[in-house]
């Protein structure tokens, strides 16, 4: 990646016409790789995220796990989720997964958003919220298959991980990546990260006997720009909040882009219908109508 690079917009929520600047420069897709098999749950990434994004301090919630709080918050975008999974032989597997925005290739939040320019997708794959255009409707929350956008009741705007678009735009890696001490977080082009992830999965299978190890990059939403290496890729649900086949609700796809305009036009037929009735059939007047009318019409009825 070159030193200075402006982020080119690929998609804009609620926008008419083309996305300005799309395709002006060649760009490659970026990707964050999270290797859950080498995550030690140190939470350095959580701290780095809060620090870099200058988020106000928020109280943590202790609920008998190592997890900092039950869910991400509007001012806490990066959360290590701790899950205990019982294997068939009765032994316990302790799973740690860094939860944050997945930066989908086909973002459900963007599809659901009705505000022009509140959600943008850059050609490098980053999906970003522009709070100054956000109207606070929270449709993105219901459009997201990963339950990521968080509403701030104070500002009435929605927030989430930006994949450090401000850093990436300047040729830097995201803050979480910089903080990771084990190298379980990596950042680079999507192609490179996919390659490394697949290599790692192969290694887990061949050298560690993890037959079901694999890469999480769900194709049901065109892939994501955060991918995971999982001990068991056949059951992502056990990591908490990783759906096997994430999808965007029908309401924000077929309904929004096809039926809304089509049925809206049908409703307008009401106006066309009455106009045509007026010119073709004419109004119904209280009877009997004044005689001048009948004379002017030439015939009496």
């Amino acid at each position: 990646m070159s030193d200075r690079k402006t982020l080119q917009t690929e998609k804009i929520s609620g926008h008419s016409g083309a996305s300005p600047g799309f395709g002006m420069q060649r760009d490659f897709e970026v990707c964050k790789l999270v290797d859950t098999t080498t995550c030690i749950g140190c939470k350095a990434c959580e701290v780095a995220c809060v620090e870099w994004n200058d988020m106000p301090f928020g109280a943590t919630t202790f609920d008998n796990t190592y997890q900092t709080m039950p869910e991400t918050r509007w001012n806490f975008w990066n959360l290590i989720k701790f899950n205990e999974h019982q294997r068939e032989d009765g032994t316990i597997q302790w799973l740690m997964r860094k939860d944050q925005c997945m930066h989908c290739a086909d973002p459900g939040c963007l599809a659901a958003c009705p505000a022009d320019g509140a959600i943008v997708k850059y050609t490098n794959g980053i999906v970003d919220f522009n709070q100054e255009n956000c109207i606070g409707c929270e449709f993105c929350v219901s459009g997201c298959p990963f339950n990521i956008p968080r509403f701030n009741p104070g500002t009435k705007k929605v927030y989430k991980c930006t994949l450090c678009s401000d850093r990436v735009g300047q040729g830097l890696e995201p803050a979480c990546i910089k903080a990771c001490p084990t190298g379980c977080l990596k950042f680079g082009s999507k192609d490179d990260m996919k390659f490394i992830a697949n290599e790692r999965a192969r290694q887990l299978k061949e050298n560690f006997g993890m037959e079901k190890a694999g890469v999480y990059d769900p194709q049901s939403i065109g892939g994501t720009h955060v991918i995971y290496v999982l001990h068991d890729a056949t059951d992502p649900e056990r990591y908490g909040g990783l759906p096997k086949n994430p999808t965007i609700p029908w309401s924000y796809t077929v309904w929004k882009w096809l039926f809304k305009p089509v049925l809206g036009t049908f409703a307008l037929f009401g106006a066309v219908g009455v106009l045509l009735h007026y010119v073709a059939v004419g109004p119904r007047r209280p009877q009997p109508e004044p005689p001048e009318k009948e004379a002017a019409n030439g015939n009496g009825d």
Binding site: G14, H15, S16, P114, D116, I135, K260
Partner: peptide, 8 residues
């Protein structure tokens, strides 16, 4: 909110 690209 219904059709932003048409009615904004």
């Amino acid at each position: 909110i219904y059709l932003p690209w048409l009615f904004r």
